[in-house]
Amino acid sequence: MKTSALPYWLAFAAAVGALYAGFTLYRHEQARQAQIAAEEEISLPPLTDFELTKSDGTPFRSADMKGKVWVTTFFFSTCPGSCTRLNQNIKYLTSLDEVADADWVSISVDPETDTLPVLAAKAKELNADPERWVFCRGDFDDVRRIAHDYLHVGGVSLKGHNDFAVIIDKQGEIAGMFNAVSTQESKKGLEIIKRELAKEYVPAKEPEATPSTSSVQQDEVVLAPRGAK
């Protein structure tokens, strides 16, 4: 190496080092912010049901899914990473006759960008059956709580998510999770979905009504002996 070129290589190495250090600091800051967000979520009241908006503008309510088996994943339309493979894998799974009765719910982690028209375009791009595969959005804070508090999958940040698919059974309980970009994991998830579809839905029993004070008093009046004071 010529001596005259040495300063340039040293400057290049310093620039690369600075970039790496900056990236490392950025990753640490992202992790710290995610931890703060998780702690904030934990302090909130438990989330037992949730509501989002589907790409056609109609509501998606988790409470309406009782009696069905459904699978939820997180994504965003401008994702440069695994979202493409994730959604293509879901597209394949939705085409299988053996799980034709399962529903699929894709939730955006970038609701500011993923407006209803954007989600509708994504559904059209993937040729998603609107009766079986819906794309939803909601306030980001709500989406984050859904991931943490309802689906217990975590890993959600603004334009950030993991690739897990969460399977919800007919009773509204989590039946399992699988990595939806992994072929091997997806096979395991498929078996869980088939197992849950084969199960019978048992509606929760409504609590028995107790007679009100007024009705008891009315019965007592009716049953009181004639002439009683």
Rank of each mutant, 00 (worst) to 15 (best):
I36E: 12
P45A: 08
T115D: 03
L126N: 09
C79Q: 04
R132S: 12
F164D: 05
F135Q: 00
A175E: 02
A224F: 07
I36C: 15
L158D: 06
P207S: 07
E98S: 11
Q30D: 13
L223T: 11
A18M: 13
R85L: 10
W70Q: 14
G176K: 01
A38Q: 04
K188S: 09
R61L: 14
R132W: 11
P46M: 03
T73R: 03
F50Y: 10
C79S: 12
D64L: 13
A204H: 02
S95I: 12
C136D: 01
Y20N: 15
L93C: 09
F75N: 03
G81N: 11
V105Y: 03
K188W: 04
V143S: 01
D163C: 01
Y20E: 15
E51F: 09
E191K: 14
I193G: 02
D142Q: 07
K66A: 15
F60L: 06
Y150P: 11
N87L: 02
K66E: 12
Q184A: 10
M177N: 06
V71W: 00
D142N: 06
S55N: 14
A38R: 04
W9S: 13
S43K: 10
F74Y: 05
A204I: 11
K188R: 14
D101H: 11
V181K: 00
E196D: 09
D110Q: 03
A5L: 15
I107R: 00
E41S: 07
N89F: 00
D97E: 15
G189S: 08
S82K: 04
D139V: 08
R27Q: 12
H152R: 08
V156W: 00
P117M: 12
A63L: 15
V109G: 00
G227C: 10
L158T: 02
R137G: 01
G189C: 06
E200L: 14
N162H: 03
T24H: 14
K122I: 07
T73M: 06
M177D: 07
K194L: 14
R145I: 01
P59I: 12
A63S: 13
T94K: 12
F74M: 02
R226I: 08
S186K: 01
G172A: 12
G22M: 13
A14C: 14
K170I: 15
Q171H: 13
E98D: 15
K205H: 06
G172K: 02
A121K: 03
Y201C: 14
N179P: 06
I168A: 10
L19Q: 09
K66G: 15
E196S: 10
N179S: 14
D139Y: 04
K188P: 04
L197V: 08
A34V: 06
D64H: 12
D219L: 15
M177E: 04
L93V: 08
K159A: 08
I192W: 02
T94D: 07
D139F: 03
A147N: 03
L44I: 04
F74E: 01
S62T: 08
Q35W: 09
T24W: 13
E208L: 14
R32T: 07
A102V: 05
I107K: 00
V134M: 05
